[in-house]
Design a protein around this nucleic acid. Structure first.
Length: 582
RNA sequence: GCGGCCGUGGUCUAGUCCGGUCUAGGAUAAAGGCUUCCCAAGCCUUGGAUCCCGGGUUCAAAUCCCGGCGACCGCACCA
């Protein structure tokens, strides 16, 4: 037998697809654990020549589908992996990406300290702001114990999934590696909005590395500490949330497990078209639905069958801190079950509002009314005589205090008598409130955000697992031709009589056209087809004796092993057509 | 991080229980050549393993013991 234990036995159990893909991944240069010569390190992955090409192709397709096909609406940007601490304080990651954990010293179970205290002591005021030492003291004082075996608890340890580092030589200059690319889009929103002629909606996209210091990553390429994320932050006006492209996908069927279905423990998704999902209120906003539809098509293109895909609504307690609605797109893998390949979050105005608050920069945009509106505005008119009588020379100071505060705020402060504002005692009779009419051209608001987010590394694994197949004891990677690392192999049937030279020149010509081509003249022709199949190359061109007579060659199709005879001058058109090249 | 289980050329493995016969065997893959052939055929040649790392026991360790690292499974964790 030629083949390496395809599907035979590993420790008494048959190899599953994961084992086989991992084995192939190493053998053919797709991927393997990182820093392997030093023992490897969990949660990091190296991509080899074939893997890197495959991953790039997936990224390229994503870029085409989500960015280039929406040019004028979605733009790609690039921002650093390292950002100052402030950014992630604003985003909520410093606070919410942290778990305060205690461990039972007897049975080694771990608990979230705050949850355990709430459970055994009840509400404790100010628990959120407590330091580790204060929490330790509280646990000791109230006699909080392991809820499982009553064992004594360890001291508190904090897990923050952010990778921390310093900028420059000063340790107090703290920075973090981004756990998502999104913040780079949010902090740049206003500037880009301005330079792109203040158009809304606008999407900003990024493909780049992110890092999350997972406590215990498992599942090989599925859960990594460093990975490539592909994200769109799509900014829109919450008062005009309609998606202009929704008609393109209205009839597309989505397999959905709604939030309500999750709550009632249902596991069989319903199948609804996009327009019905919106009508029924399963998906709260049109742009989110639109991107979910795109994602569904995209994942199908990578080779995942529709019946092994679904979207699952995340209940509030499982959602990220910024999200008002989240759907995870899941794909069923043989070993890992349903695995998240993309997340679709309705982030509302959370991030922009927070950055506005933390940076002091205005993140709002202007919405013009159809026609200017007359609005009644409360105005405050200072009574100079009354103020002058009390303050004499300092009247000016008091006047500026009154002018510097919004009329309605001032009125509520004065509603129960004199109030001290900015160190000045203001009496109600200092001001006269009245309503005036003002014409307003529009109003300011903070855009809302719909975010589709993908992990490129998982998708690479997914594509490999979906493509993996065996035929007559050989591995055939049925990768979609749009993402296959190598597009065509060229073989001389024999290495003599000028056939080698002819094949080699075809190979050179194809490469010159920008087609990724490989040349193989070693071993038997069958062996070469087999090698080509293993790296998922969809086409093999073989030059034989007939080529020398009529300038045709055979194209052998990977998935059917069928052969077509094609004039060499038509090769280019055939390949470029089949490879979906532009 | 806890418990279980495992770690031998690129890959898959034999050997480990019961230490020596292992200067680690096989298959496959790879490189070179022959064969000139349409699906891993065959033949010849070559390279490739300090048996995961470190320590210990012993005259002697892939094999026994301890520690570490890593994979997988279960638990916990998973913005």
């Amino acid at each position: 037998m030629y083949i390496i234990n395809l599907g035979l036995i590993r420790e008494g159990v048959p190899m599953d697809k994961y084992d086989k893909v991992v084995e192939l991944g190493r053998r053919r240069g797709f991927f393997w654990p990182s820093s392997e010569i030093y023992g490897g390190v969990a949660g990091f992955l190296d991509f080899g020549p074939m893997g890197a090409m495959l991953k790039r192709n997936i990224e390229r397709r994503w870029r085409e589908v989500f960015i280039h096909q929406h040019h004028g609406l979605v733009y790609e940007i690039e921002t650093p992996v390292i950002m100052p601490a402030k950014v992630f304080e604003a985003s909520g990651h410093v606070e919410n990406f942290t778990d305060v954990v205690v461990e039972c010293m007897q049975c080694h179970k771990r608990f979230r300290a705050d949850h355990l205290i709430l459970e055994q002591v009840g509400e404790v005021k100010g628990i959120e702001g407590m330091t580790n030492e204060e929490l330790d003291a509280l646990i000791l004082e109230k006699g909080v114990r392991c809820s499982d075996c009553q064992g004594q608890l360890s001291k508190i340890s904090k897990f923050n999934l952010l990778f921390r580092t310093n900028i420059g030589p000063y340790s107090e200059n703290v920075a973090y590696l981004r756990p998502e690319a999104a913040q780079g889009m949010f902090v740049n929103f206003k500037g880009i909005f301005n330079s792109m002629r203040e158009r809304l909606p606008i999407g900003l996209a990024q493909i780049g590395k992110v890092a999350r210091n997972e406590i215990s990553p498992r599942q090989g390429p599925i859960r990594l500490r460093e990975f490539t994320i592909m994200e769109v932050e799509f900014f829109f006006d919450p008062k005009s949330p309609g998606c202009t492209l929704i008609d393109d996908v209205a009839d597309l069927k989505l397999r959905l497990l709604t939030e309500d279905m999750v709550k009632s423990n249902e596991s069989e998704p319903i199948q609804v078209c996009v327009s019905d999902a919106l009508k029924e209120g399963y998906i709260k906003t049109e742009w989110l639905a639109y991107f979910m539809a795109l994602s569904s098509k995209f994942i199908s293109e990578l080779g995942a069958p529709v019946e092994s895909q679904m979207f699952i609504g995340k209940p509030p307690e499982e959602r990220a801190h910024y999200s008002a609605q989240t759907f995870d797109q899941l794909v069923k893998l043989e070993r890992w079950g349903w695995v998240e390949v993309s997340g679709h979050a309705y982030r509302t105005d959370y991030d922009l509002s927070r950055h506005m608050q933390y940076s002091g920069q205005d993140m709002s945009v202007f919405r013009k009314y159809d026609a200017p509106r007359k609005v009644k505005v409360l105005a405050a008119k200072p009574r100079v005589e009354a103020i002058g009588a009390d303050h004499g020379k300092n009247t000016g100071k008091v006047l500026s205090v009154i002018k510097g505060i919004e009329a309605s705020t001032l009125r509520s402060k004065l509603s129960s008598g004199p109030a001290e504002i900015e160190g000045v005692l203001i009496k109600p009779d200092y001001v006269e409130f009245y309503e005036k009419e003002e014409a307003q051209a529009g109003e300011r608001f903070i855009p809302h955000v719909a975010e589709p987010s993908f992990g490129a590394d998982r998708l690479t694994y997914l594509a490999l697992e979906c493509a993996y197949s065996e035929r007559e004891d050989r591995v055939v990677l049925r990768l979609p031709s749009s993402i296959a690392p190598v597009s065509v192999s060229v073989f001389p049937l024999v290495n003599r009589d000028g056939i080698w030279e002819k094949a080699y020149s075809i190979y050179r010509d194809l490469k010159g056209l920008g087609i990724i081509a490989e040349f193989d003249d070693s071993g038997s022709i069958g062996r070469r087809y087999a090698r080509s199949d293993e790296i998922g190359c969809p086409y093999a061109v073989t030059v034989d004796y007939q080529t020398l007579q009529d300038d045709t060659a055979t194209i052998r199709l990977r998935d059917t092993w069928e052969q077509l005879r094609v004039p060499i001058r038509e090769l280019r058109g055939f390949l470029q057509g089949s490879l979906q090249m532009r």
